[in-house]
Nucleic acid binder design. Structure first.
Lengths: 281, 281
DNA sequence: AACTGTGAAAACTTTCACAGCA
DNA sequence: TGCTGTGAAAGTTTTCACAGTT
């Protein structure tokens, strides 16, 4: 790896230990960061690993171990400096410079994300919003006009986004992804459950809302099993009857964009991640 | 928790091996399930571990190992029966009976979720939708009227939901959670980044969309570091300037109900808290 | 006394490679 | 032959316990 002169103010991140930070730790850093931001707002100056751990919902030992990968950040016998630690984590996560985000798919989910204060607050700026629905194009969402997806390629050059978010129907997700990749976007967050095919240098992260619900369902089932099959409140109501409706129903779409029909190809895309390493759950 | 008589036959799911299935495996089962549903729709009868693995974005060995925890599901030399495997996974995940879902917070995100076809398709039925905004109460979303959150307690008894979803602004999340817990809900999915306090018998799962973005950011930073700090496309645009605005700004809310939050996925920004033990990804 | 940072042990997960079956 | 199921090895993450610092 090319070495680099040490600019006092390095471009992307400060100390450069990224390579050695475990995946699992990185995932938690973002959580610590949120807690620290709250503490900072409350003008809390110092926090102990125990306090921070409780607020983040992890064990204090794990938290200390996590932070130790970023180098020494605390003072023994005292605790961590809230501001300093926050800045350090932001730096490591590459958030220091902020990110410019374009979003494709201005349906309900897309609009919800654009309006999500948490993004702005955490350094993500929405700079472009695209859709292919003529009824939506031109209308502003949170002050940002919806632009025609046909302009996407040009707009990417102009807006120079660091991250793109896909919230289109499943059927369009791959096409949009291709478009973004061709335009030079390196980081994509997709809310479509279909696995997107992209070159290895492009980081694709997929998020599937239904998966979360299914994980909850599993816990519920396990608890019920362990406790002897009482489902408490739920026991009263009618079971829902999952497979009553045809699986493939393009079904009741009631809102502008969101919904989808199952359209993935039989053995199509693989979830891609950078460097040949697929980032898996 | 009160212990109970041990019913030999558990009502919720067939073979009852839940206890022995590793966390990591469970998280992936939901993904396999989605792929299998697509295959079933396409009338594919048999699938090999390799095909399924590619479509799900994992290695075939891992996939076979995962499935082996559910007992024998395939035929050596042939592959897996799509329908049979799908049903088996649904059973293990506790999806066979379907789930009744109430959602509190009819903002953009809430409405997006109600309209999200993926839920219905996978056995989750929205049965109730609540908000405290008089302007929203009474208006239908996807055929479901928004009800006053004041009715929530009574409605839970009446609707007997198995799962509740919280998509309210952060400030209300805990109050709504308390309300749900008091009403007897056992499973809660929250899209607010704040850690919710709930009794140990209640399964709370939190999802924070910003975490996903931050993980992407980290990969970007790491890649840039490894490649010699060029940020390609992004290099052109102005840095965003994260901390320019006050951190605590309740900030520009531009859509009906208030802020909203979004999703994540197995590994990243997801957390499950339960039975006093915080289960980490 | 209070709290961080960390080596070393334990637990969990992934990968490998092959036995076993249709 | 082709593909599943699995034990054992390799790798990763968590937990423990305590040495070190203020």
């Amino acid at each position: 790896m090319t070495e680099q002169h040490e600019t006092p103010n390095s471009g992307v991140s400060g100390k450069a230990l990224q390579k050695d930070i475990p995946q699992a730790t990185v995932a938690r850093l973002a959580t610590y960061l949120r807690v620290l931001a709250v503490l900072a707002d409350d003008a809390v100056a110092i926090v102990s690993s125990e306090e921070l751990a409780v607020a983040a919902g992890v064990g204090s030992a794990k938290l200390r171990k996590d932070l130790s990968f970023l180098g020494p950040n605390g003072v023994r016998g005292v605790g961590y400096d809230v501001i300093k630690l926050r800045d350090r984590i932001e730096d490591v996560l590459g958030l220091s410079e902020g990110h410019r985000v374009v979003l494709v798919g201005a349906g309900n989910l897309g609009r919800a994300l654009v309006g999500y204060g948490g993004f702005r607050r955490r350094g993500f700026a929405m700079v472009g919003l695209f859709d292919n629905d003529p009824a939506l194009i031109g209308t502003p969402v949170c002050g940002l006009p919806v632009r025609d997806v046909a302009e996407l390629t040009g707009a990417v050059a102009e807006l120079a986004p660091t991250i793109a978010v896909i919230t289109t129907p499943d059927a369009h997700a791959q096409a949009v992804c291709d478009l973004l990749v061709a335009a030079g976007v390196l980081c994509i967050l997709s809310f479509s459950p279909v696995a997107l095919d992209a070159p290895p240098h492009v980081e694709v992260r997929r998020v599937d809302l239904a998966v979360e619900m299914q994980l909850l369902s599993f816990e519920l089932a396990r608890n019920a099993e362990a406790a002897g099959e009482t489902v408490s409140v739920a026991a009263a109501g009618d079971p829902v009857g999952v497979r009553t409706a045809p699986r493939n129903a393009a079904a009741m779409n009631c809102t502008p964009i969101t919904t989808s029909h199952a359209a993935a190809r039989p053995s199509g895309g693989t979830e891609t991640a950078s460097k040949g390493a697929v980032v898996q759950p």
